[in-house]
Design a protein around this nucleic acid. Structure first.
Length: 122
RNA sequence: UAUCGGCGGGGGACGGCCGCUGCAUGACUUACGGUGAUGCAGAGGAAAGUCCGGACUCCGUAGAGCAGGGAAUCCCGGAGAAAUCCGGGAUGUCGCGGACGAUAUGCCGCGAUAAGGCCAGUGCCACAGAAAAUAUACCGUCUUGCCGUAGUACGGCAGGAUAAGGGUGAAAAGGUGGAGUAAGAGCCCACCGGGUCCUCGCGCAAGUGGGAUCGCAUGGUAAACCCUUCCCGGAGCAAGGUCAAAUAGAGAACAAGGCAUUGCUCGUGCCGCCCCGGUUCGGGAUAUGUUCCGGGUAGACCGCAAAGAUAAAUGGUCGUCGCUCACCGACUGAUUAUGCCGUAUUGACGGCCAUGAACAGCCAGCGAGUACAGAAUCCGGCUUAUACCCGCCGAUACCUU
RNA sequence: GCGGGUAUAGCAUAGUGGUAAUGCACCAGCUUCCCAAGCUGGCUAGGAGGGUUCGAUUCCCUCUACCCGCU
């Protein structure tokens, strides 16, 4: 099962505009200090994530790419603990710019826990 | 030596673990953007801004003109398809300095210069000033007539001459000197400056020199309209092309059940083939299925690359080192100060010994920093951003000679 | 990505080669027992840097920020 192998590739990311619209239609919103997530029940068993880093976050392309990489890396590290059949979208906020990878991972885990989408650690 | 600015060059290295994207190979699953394996490739000097030039694609296009946009001193050499860049020289204009005190202006040196044309035309030139472009009379200067006081002098009124002087302004209608005059004036003369003309000289040319001629009113602004010469078709990879669901619309074709003929089939003939209605007429509704054509939406693929996607890869973490800065310590070098001796009138010079700091080098420790910035069709140029290091040039400050 | 446009007081807008107008807001005063309204006065501005010009917010160039269109 790919969900337990701890990697992120194109299969695990939301890739179409219709996917994002599906999540936005069915989503519950959870707010954190560095990010906001919209989380929804998936139409199948998969776990998928999408990241939004708009020009309102930062006008420099380097900063937007860095934020998306941090979120993707955090997702990769905690992916095995997310309940199946979950799609969610992460919208980054300005305060993520000075965060390190561990900070982002901790916060993403906390927020997903609030949304009741995390399984108990074995 | 330090700081600042400009130009050019460089703009981190290696390894462990966990990962990402593309391609190739063969395997397993399957028909999917799958799984795991191996190999190869995987951000920049600006990838940025999108300011120029091209490649490429589609549309348009006989030719010419108008509109619109752009370029603009001259010559030589070099690179390039072009944009553009490099090197050398010349002319004009402007600024600063000098010979040389001022004005017009010429000469010399340095620097800057998007530098065709405002005697083709039009517009504008605030405030100040009399007057801002057909020149003009505010003060001033001179003068005529009349009046007043005794007067040739002064004052008043009316008129005339005058651009020398004052003052204003960014800019005031050639400059200096002389002659001349009532006072003045290129009104006239000399020199300087300027315009025009020349089948004149020099120079490839922009120009420049000479001659003749004109006393010479004819500023500034064209990154104001405009004129001259030359150049330019438009849109852009979200260009464009291929395949092509669903839905809606449009068109075309086909299909339905029964009876007769016959042993059966094919074929043929007749009736019927949405609903109401006994039936023609009439009224209502205008449908079902399949196939095809056209169109091109969602979507996919091509365009598209020895990086290359389309919610967009090139990362995370740990370690070692490099570079820069700060602090502390050890060692080495070195100047200066103090002391003694010698020369010496003094200043000063030379020699010797020890000590301590600024300073420099090197080593070790500890801490901090390591920029600007992320390809999206491709290539070239320009512009802008950039920690730190190297080289060159310039400016400023201090020190020494 | 490609193409186009805008920038003026705290906010919303004018205007033009000669220092900048209007409304709202803000501040002070008058009025009122107090507030509001009204009246009077004040405050504060051309995104940045160069160039052309006697003079630039305006004209030209280079940047910066923002907005819009095209799947």
């Amino acid at each position: 099962m790919s969900a337990t192998s701890g990697r992120l590739r194109q299969v695990e990311s939301l890739r179409k505009r219709s996917d994002f619209e599906y999540v936005r239609e069915h989503a519950r919103k959870v707010v954190g200090s560095r990010m906001v997530i919209q989380i929804a029940a998936a139409p199948d068993d998969s776990i998928k994530m999408g990241v939004i880093a708009s020009r309102r976050y930062n006008t420099r392309a380097v900063a937007r790419n860095r934020a998306k990489r941090l979120v993707r890396e955090a997702f990769r590290l905690i992916q095995s603990r997310i309940k199946p059949s979950t799609w969610f979208v992460v919208i980054v906020r300005r305060r993520i710019s000075e965060a390190k990878c561990q900070d982002v991972r901790r916060e993403l885990l906390t927020i997903l826990g609030k949304a009741n989408a995390v399984t108990k650690q074995q």
